[in-house]
């Protein structure tokens, strides 16, 4: 589904990613781990075309298309969904209205007939019920005044309505207590299928207990220096990222 080859990304002349390779097949769950500030979030943002990052070289293909030629919105239409670490607040934009606009844009792109407002409302109501969200969520402005947990739930709600193919989950566990984390993880798990893939970015192994990865990668010095399964995460939990340094000096 997603192939990244020899990717180099700069921000304001500073190299963030350098020589990164990654392959994600349909139905797979990948976790990227690494110490703070190694460019984990950069990777998610680059895949979704954040304007701050400049791809200097390398390739990203997605569903056999050259992703680098598509802009943010086009990538979103193609099914790439970034769940933000800190979803931004937009005052005055009603949450429900925003959902409908985004949904309509997607319908238009895929050539499906738009839903009537009433049907859409039914759909949203069903979704919020399954996520355990209260209905007043829809009346509020987009993320405005939401608590950390509410913001993350709102991301899950959008995800469940827009039904993307590739989930980029950027530290969705940050700032959440155990209960909130559980319901967010449940939201993600309920959407997993053979057609959908996940790229999970996290600092702690904690999240991986709730969303089980097929692969775990360690990102350091701009590239993936080690890949493995859940055991790798456990090792890091035990020994910390110091092993990373050992690996680096060994290589």
């Amino acid at each position: 589904m997603l192939h990244i080859k020899n990717l180099r990304v700069d921000i304001e002349d500073k190299i963030i990613l350098n020589g990164l390779d990654l392959d994600i097949k349909a139905g797979e769950v990948h976790a990227i781990m690494g110490p703070n500030g190694v460019g984990k979030s950069t990777l998610a943002k680059v895949i979704s075309a954040h304007p701050d990052y400049e791809v200097k070289s390398g390739e990203i293909t997605y569903k056999n298309k050259n992703l680098l030629e598509l802009d943010v919105a086009q990538r979103a239409m193609e099914g790439i969904f970034l769940a933000f670490q800190n979803p931004i607040e937009i005052l005055g934009v009603n949450n429900m209205y925003f959902l409908k606009q985004a949904f309509n844009a997607k319908c238009k792109y895929t050539g499906i007939e738009e839903m009537t407002s009433l049907d859409f409302l039914k759909l949203v109501k069903a979704k919020i019920k399954s996520l355990g969200i209260t209905a007043d969520f829809l009346k509020r402005d987009l993320n405005a005044g939401f608590s950390g947990g509410e913001k993350k739930l709102n991301e899950m709600l959008q995800m469940s309505i827009l039904e993307p193919k590739l989930f980029l989950l950027d530290e969705i566990d940050s700032g959440l207590d155990v209960d909130a984390l559980k319901s967010v993880a449940q939201g993600v798990n309920s959407m997993l299928s053979k057609e959908r893939s996940v790229l999970l970015i996290t600092h702690h192994k904690h999240l991986l207990e709730y969303i089980k990865p097929d692969f775990v990668h360690i990102l350091y010095d701009g590239k993936i220096i080690q890949s493995g399964d859940i055991h790798l995460a456990k090792e890091i939990e035990k020994n910390g990222y110091s092993i990373v340094k050992d690996l680096r000096s060994a290589s």
Binding site: V72, A73, M77, I88, G92, Q101
Partner: peptide
Amino acid sequence: SDEQLFYLMQRGLSEEDAVSMIVNGFCKE
């Protein structure tokens, strides 16, 4: 803000729609 635009566009809105949505929200009252 670029971050607001990015957020809306990441959800599939075109840039025009994203700008118009933010401006309309700004003027809502």
